[in-house]
Design a binder for these strands. Structure first.
Lengths: 194, 194
DNA sequence: GTCTATAATAGGATAGAC
DNA sequence: GTCTATCCTATTATAGAC
């Protein structure tokens, strides 16, 4: 035990790429900038990612996808009532967005939008992340007793709505879109509850 | 009357920039590419936009924002029942997305996400477009008899949800997220109707 | 208003020493 | 694995003839 190794070079590179692409998008983020932010050299980046920027983009999206999935799991499990759990998620996103001064929205939307239809590998990684998130929400709804089909569809709308509300909140620099969406989602879920 | 002038150079440039930025984002779109697509020269682009790429980005976002507002108005006015009108909007977006082979999602999301917090002029243009869309939906809901406050909040969630569902649909190359969101939004609106 | 040429810089990527 | 130097290309932007 006692294993908390400080992040290795590869890990620092992926984290830096993930953060920068969240804020500036894929095209707006340079490999040199990633190297600098990760306190690594350009040579190291290409050592770990011989596939170049696209491979780095894939790793960044996967990393961010998993990180967000963890956050989602944690938040969802803190409320027994699924409607309240979703509202809590929306609130958590709003707080995080405001505290980052509106810079840290969805970690993969910008990259996904820029590359869709043009960089298949990244596109696929983004689709998988979205699917993973949806599955987590669907599981929560099912465990709360909702029928399978309802849970599946609601989970899809929950992810879509949180995604869109975060975008709207970020653009308008206001927590309101996320908070209002959280309330509406709870109402929607409750309308399926009996 | 009888005034259908063919598009001038400036108009062609803005249209091309708008389309390219929709598909590739702001950073992923080059001014030379815009000029080429608009069948104009680089000199013409800088003639009309001395402010350079940022000024072009602002014009592109405003153009796309207005174009989408027109589409929204048209679709909303074709159904008397507001819930059905919103569902129709979602369906229209889904069809358009599929028919473009998943390239034409929200015309401004990619640009907005990439530039938020970094290019204030573009950020502001995007925020105005979002606000404009929300106002159109709010008007529709009010005209259908919903209380002012409900209409305002619902319109916000409608825009957020359509936005997110379009993103999810584009990334997963499926109409489903938009179609399901359309149904859920109708259900949500109807739950406020009495 | 339109065009070409070019400046100045930054981008992704590679080579090879260590 | 790490580092530096460098190649090549693309980028934004400008200058000036027409």
């Amino acid at each position: 035990m006692a294993n908390t190794p400080q992040p290795g070079t590869r890990e620092r590179i992926v984290s830096a790429a993930s953060l920068l692409m969240q804020r500036q998008g894929y095209e707006g983020t340079g490999i040199k900038q990633v190297a600098q932010e990760a306190q690594a050299t350009l040579g190291s980046v290409y050592h770990f990612f011989p596939g170049g920027k696209q491979a780095l983009g894939v790793a960044a999206v996967q990393h961010a996808g998993q990180e967000f999935a963890d956050l989602l799991s944690t938040t969802l499990s803190q409320e027994a009532d699924p409607a309240k759990a979703i509202t809590a998620c929306a609130r958590a996103l709003a707080t995080h967005l405001r505290e980052s001064e509106w810079t840290d929205g969805c970690p993969i939307s910008a990259t996904a939008l820029e590359t869709t239809g043009r960089v298949p590998d990244i596109e696929q990684a983004a689709a998988q992340a979205f699917q993973h998130w949806q599955d987590l929400v669907a599981d929560t709804l099912r465990e709360a007793g909702l029928p399978n089909d309802d849970a599946h569809d609601l989970a899809l709308t929950v992810i879509s709505t949180l995604e869109g509300a975060e975008l709207t909140a970020q653009v308008s620099k206001s927590e309101t879109p996320l908070l209002v969406a959280g309330e509406h989602l709870a109402r929607l879920i409750n309308s399926y509850k009996e």
